[in-house]
């Protein structure tokens, strides 16, 4: 008998009582850290239709974050902006295809990623479990803020219309899109594919693959730390951010996803507060979540809510 996914699956996640206070404490620390955006043209990566820039900005703990910023050469002064977040393993791509469609797009490399690892580099594998017993120093505390601060970078650009900012990504990029849409009200639309960092503890039981297997490895070696791990991860679980999301959002899943179990994606979707939310669950697809075909839907969704200039 083949495996079947229960779309009503409920993760065992609990929201910490001080969840909001925890994150307010974190984001308050940013007030003393100037963004200091830097932007450098990269003629080698630019094309006749798209200008590419290497960019940097400061984030939590004054860690310098890098990214690739691509904008269409034909543009006005009020363009929609898109934040593209990377997967756990992938190197942030140069987002020329978004720029070709008329968006100013920043592809972010949060701390630890290539281009942003001079001050913080817990390694891969290893990033997922770095300081996992302490929410105040866990990797994703800064990693999340790096993504959220990318909104400030876009808003620092005169060519961006602050009222038309979208976020998108697959896997970890999906997880970062969730938390960014939750914590930054400036986000007007979001697309989330095969989200990672959602239903952590359930995922450990629902999969036998990396990267979640990193946590299983950790708990096999340190079983006495399970309660601390669970407590930390509750502050970082996408499901606990879902009720803060009110912008239009689209979620796509693969029912045979062997990396980020679709059960966790279903639970996440139910928790989203947005009135305009759409779910696509693709049978016959794994962690790709039917990315190739679904991309057209994402583009139409973004066009509807934040439009493009070209």
């Amino acid at each position: 008998m083949s495996y079947t996914v229960d779309p009503q699956y409920k993760c065992q996640i609990q929201k910490p009582k001080d969840f909001d206070a925890f994150w307010k404490g974190v984001t308050d620390q940013l007030t003393d850290i100037p963004l200091d955006p830097e932007i450098y043209a990269d003629p080698l990566r630019s094309s006749p239709t798209v200008e590419v820039f290497r960019v940097f900005y400061n984030s939590l703990d004054s860690v310098k974050i890098s990214g690739w910023y691509a904008i269409p050469r034909t543009r006005s002064s009020a363009m929609p902006g898109v934040l593209l977040f990377p997967g756990y393993l992938s190197d942030p791509p140069i987002p020329k295809t978004w720029a070709e469609k008329g968006y100013a797009c920043l592809s972010v490399a949060p701390r630890g990623k290539i281009g942003s690892k001079q001050q913080f580099d817990p390694g891969y594998p290893g990033l997922l479990t770095h300081n996992i017993v302490d929410p105040n120093t866990y990797t994703y505390r800064g990693f999340y803020v790096d993504a959220w601060r990318a909104v400030d970078f876009l808003m620092s650009r005169s060519e961006i219309d602050d009222n038309r900012i979208g976020v998108t990504g697959i896997s970890q990029g999906g997880g970062l899109s969730i938390t960014t849409a939750a914590m930054r009200p400036e986000v007007s639309v979001a697309s989330v594919g095969a989200p990672y960092l959602v239903g952590f503890m359930d995922s450990l039981l629902l999969t036998d693959t990396y990267p979640y297997e990193e946590i299983n490895d950790y708990l096999r070696l340190y079983p006495e730390r399970k309660e601390q791990v669970e407590s930390t991860l509750a502050y970082f679980d996408g499901i606990n951010f879902a009720d803060k999301i009110t912008c239009p959002i689209m979620v796509h899943l693969g029912l045979q996803d062997n990396v980020c179990p679709p059960e966790t994606g279903f639970h996440l979707f139910r928790e989203l507060k947005s009135q305009q939310k759409e779910l696509f669950a693709y049978d016959g697809h794994g962690h790709d979540a039917n990315r190739k075909e679904h991309q057209k839907k994402i583009e139409a969704f973004f066009e509807k809510y934040i439009g493009s200039e070209i």
Binding site: Y88, L89, S90, D91, I114, Y124, P125, D208, T209, Y210, P211, E213, N216, N258, V259, G286, H287
Partner: peptide, 14 residues
């Protein structure tokens, strides 16, 4: 890619 997998992502650890 810049990253070295211990085992390719999505491969059953078994």
């Amino acid at each position: 890619t810049s990253v070295l997998d211990f085992l390719p992502q999505g491969t059953s650890n078994f």
